[in-house]
Amino acid sequence: MTLRVVIAEDSLLIREGVERVLSRDPELQVVAACADLPELLAAVETHQPDVVVTDVRMPPTSSDEGIQAATKLRASRPSTGVVVLSQYAEPSYATMLLAGGSAGRAYLLKERVGEPGQLVEAVRAVARGGSVIDPIVVEGILADSMKRRASPLATLTPRERDVLAQIAQGKSNAAVGETLYLSEKSVEKHISVLFAKLGLESTPEVNRRVLAVLLYLAEQGG
């Protein structure tokens, strides 16, 4: 059975490269090649493809249009597979892509375009309802997960994290309480517990606040 494919990529060179790779397979038919998200969505309506191969970033905003397309298609055309191509081994893109389920979804680095067998197999896999994630991206997801588990902040409750976020803004206990609708005594209790969880019990009060804030900012990338 011939699989109908729509390609979306704003770089002409890469778009033509992807089309050339896929067109070599007699079981794949490229029915449209687009340069942005509106063109892609229009092409899907017109050609009703089995699979969409899309860049993760493209006009109009060059942010996460490929992920947006995959999300829209899961709702409007759940049987259409989506292969997202990216030059970024970024775990967050992959997790967003798989947030609604992994069936019929693939996330590959663009370097795989130079490995025709992998790209073609990914197209076939998502058409069958399967899933393919680039091994390098999987490594990144695992490393990111391990990092989160290793972080001492992972032991904090959501409320304790809220309190710490307010402390990081330089607020006093009273100000934290006003913002979070807590009594000052409750704020003090939360702070005492989060200090203990972060292993900061043996240092003076002022230093503990500073160290807790530094841990928080380090996790936030600030």
Rank of each mutant, 00 (worst) to 15 (best):
A143D: 13
S131L: 07
K72I: 13
V30I: 07
M58H: 02
R148A: 12
P158V: 13
V120R: 11
K185V: 14
S186Y: 12
P26W: 00
A75K: 09
L198D: 14
D25S: 10
Q87G: 10
L85C: 04
V120W: 02
L109F: 06
V206D: 05
S76P: 03
E9Q: 11
E65L: 01
R105M: 08
M1A: 10
P116I: 02
E219Q: 11
I167N: 01
L97K: 05
A75I: 07
R74M: 09
G140I: 13
L153V: 13
S11V: 02
V5T: 01
V18D: 01
L215W: 07
L142M: 15
F195H: 14
A122L: 08
A168H: 06
R77N: 05
V113K: 08
L108K: 08
Q48K: 11
T157K: 03
E201Y: 06
Y93K: 00
A43M: 01
L37V: 05
E16F: 06
P38E: 11
Q87I: 07
R161T: 15
G199A: 11
A218S: 12
R124F: 05
L182N: 01
A42G: 11
E9N: 04
V83D: 03
V210D: 09
S63T: 13
D55V: 02
E205W: 12
I141T: 14
L97I: 05
D162W: 03
D50Y: 04
V82S: 04
L194W: 05
I133L: 03
V123I: 03
G221M: 08
D25I: 00
G221S: 04
S192T: 15
G222Y: 07
L164W: 11
D144F: 09
L156A: 11
D25L: 04
P204V: 09
E45D: 15
S183D: 03
R77K: 06
E160M: 10
Q48E: 12
A150G: 06
V137P: 07
A125K: 12
D134H: 06
L119K: 06
R15P: 02
V84G: 01
R105W: 00
L119S: 05
T71K: 03
I191H: 09
L85N: 04
T71H: 12
K72M: 10
A8S: 02
V18R: 01
M1S: 13
A35Q: 05
E205R: 15
E205L: 11
L194Y: 09
D162M: 07
S62R: 15
P38W: 07
L85Y: 04
A69W: 00
V53I: 08
V193K: 14
T179S: 15
K185G: 08
V31A: 02
A175E: 15
G129V: 06
N173G: 15
L200E: 05
S172C: 12
A168C: 10
S183K: 03
L22R: 03
T157L: 13
L153F: 10
T61W: 03
G100F: 05
G130P: 13
I14H: 07
E178Q: 14
A69V: 02
E27W: 13
L153M: 10
A125F: 04
R112E: 14
A89N: 07
Q220T: 05
